[in-house]
Amino acid sequence: MTEAALVPKSAEGGDSALVVLDGVNKWFGDLHVLQNINLTISRGEVAVVIGPSGGGKSTFCRTINRLEPIDQGEIRLDGKPLPAEGKGLARLRADVGMVFQAFNLFAHKTVLQNVTLGPIKVRGKREQDASERAQQLLDRVGVADQAHKYPAQLSGGQQQRVAIARALAMEPKVMLFDEPTSALDPEMIKEVLDVMVDLAKGGMTMVVVTHEMGFARTAANRVLFMADGQIVEEATPNEFFTNPKSDRAKDFLGKILKH
């Protein structure tokens, strides 16, 4: 199995715009957490979202598969607007992989079952086919030998790699990462980032909310700097880290890079 096998067919050809956010607004009560977001993410693009805490990064990421509903605007995935709650939304979510900060592996299922459950229940795959594919993916993320353990028996890094395999098993068009390394002990961060870098090299479309500047430099095509519910700045990693334009970005980078 080559790395290319990780990338679904839809990533090649067709309209280059995969995720489009058009005038998106969202409020939590009085708090305007997403302010008029307009953004297009192309096929194969790796967009890294960085910025200060409370700036709306996670909310932004979670609106893309409608785990958070929006109040205004439109989100289109592969040309189709996100449907409201229901079966249509469930079908669409199946095409969007999501990796959570807290892993959220199904606690009562084995590692293997975590990866096969979606393909069997949602895609209607045969159990044997799903298991074979799951074994390949677990092997790919380096936890093949843990397949029959329960999530609680794994380290955080291992759990997060299983979570990535679980998302990949659905053959998603785009992968969302919501601070995937923030809950990990430092020595486990690298094993997860390595998998993500591999994915990025393989051509997977990715939206990654993270504090890992190293990952942003090496893997991102574009850096989105978010603060106060707005995308304040977007640029290539090189441009952003060497020559930030906005004061907010300069201030932010000044704080995190001084150590």
Binding site: N65, L67, K87, A90, R91, L92, R93, A94, D95, V96, G97, M98, F100, A102, N104, L105, F106, A107, L117, G118, K121, V122, A163, R166, A167, M170
Partner: peptide, 23 residues
């Protein structure tokens, strides 16, 4: 049950009924 469990189930495309009955 941790709400993250239901979120993860929805994120892989399970319907409300599947999320409830399977997870």
């Amino acid at each position: 049950v941790d709400p993250g469990q239901a979120e993860a189930a929805r994120a892989v495309g399970m319907t409300f009924t599947q999320t409830l009955s399977v997870i």
